[in-house]
């Protein structure tokens, strides 16, 4: 099990995957809005989305887990 974490503090703009989706390392899985910038969040590993831990509009801190992969 691996987590995809927020790279910095900000507001989650959108989650681009849903439970059960297959993702590959480097795939864009979410977009964070921080410092008025759209920041793409990429998966660091291959896997299947097991859980989504934050929703669009949530404030997240650096290091917070956003997506759980198995």
């Amino acid at each position: 099990m691996r987590h995809i974490e927020a790279p910095m503090a900000g507001t989650l703009l959108s989650v681009l995957v849903k439970k059960g989706d297959e993702v590959k390392a480097g795939d864009q899985v979410a977009v964070l809005e921080s410092m008025k910038m759209e920041i793409p969040i990429e998966s660091g590993a291959d896997g299947t989305v097991a859980e989504i831990k934050a929703a669009a509009g949530d404030f997240v801190n650096e290091g917070d887990p956003l997506i759980v992969l198995v």
């Binding site: 790279p7 910095m8 921080s34 410092m35 910038m37 759209e38 920041i39 793409p40």
Partner: peptide, 10 residues
């Protein structure tokens, strides 16, 4: 690098 953390300085 705007692709990483929006290019914000840390």
């Amino acid at each position: 690098q705007p692709k990483v953390k929006g290019g914000v300085l840390f």
